[in-house]
């Protein structure tokens, strides 16, 4: 039997959800027996591959790049999981939403900077008007809230998905 393909992705988040993923401890070995991790911050691959079985996405959708990547992930993945509060609710990433983008960038990179006061424009993706949860951009199949989500919730969800079942997360909810 060929192994399943798992991809992970880090949009506008702090990488805490990925830390929690690493915190699966020995469950990681169980996961590794059944699946390969083919994309993500833990892997070298440059482009999101085709034919992914489970994609775990951390972070809110905050920039045009996030939006494009998320749409690619959706097209190329069987199951898309929103991993953590930023992906599920917008969380801390969305706290900027009440401030117009231009004002926000100027406050940080001009008024807030001691030197080189300029809003960066080269090689950085443009910010969307508001940062939001994944499901406001694409269809999401499963939500694992938590900041970060508990390793046992992630482990349970991933192992269930690899068995072809849809995990019932109702008893594992934790926001914050």
């Amino acid at each position: 039997m060929s192994k399943a393909k798992i991809a992970t992705c880090w949009l506008d988040g702090c990488s805490g959800c990925h830390m929690s993923l690493l915190d699966l401890d020995e469950t990681l070995i169980q996961v590794a027996r059944k699946a390969d991790i083919v994309f993500g911050p833990l892997v070298d691959a440059q482009e999101f591959p085709e034919g992914v079985d489970v994609a775990l996405v951390e972070g809110a959708v905050s920039s045009y790049d996030d939006q494009r990547l998320l749409q690619t992930i959706r097209r190329r993945s069987q199951v898309l999981v929103a991993l953590g509060d930023c992906a599920v609710t917008g969380n801390v990433s969305s706290m900027r939403n009440g401030i117009p983008v231009k004002k926000l960038l100027e406050r940080i990179y001009v008024q807030g900077a001691a030197e080189a006061q300029a809003v960066p424009s080269d090689g950085v993706p443009g910010l969307l008007k508001q940062a939001g949860p994944l499901h406001e951009t694409v269809k999401v199949d499963l939500h694992i809230p938590g900041c970060p989500p508990k390793p046992d919730a992630i482990g349970f969800a991933v192992l269930e998905l690899l068995e072809g079942r849809k995990p019932d997360m109702a008893s594992k909810v934790k926001f914050g």
Partner: peptide
């Protein structure tokens, strides 16, 4: 704007606790 992770009452909040109790995984 209920941003639980930075709230002064995170883990002591009745709204948050009810979401967990009733299995609200997302909005």
């Amino acid at each position: 704007n209920h941003v639980c992770s930075v709230c002064v009452s995170n883990n002591h909040c009745e709204l948050q606790a009810l979401a967990a109790r009733l299995g609200v995984t997302n909005v």
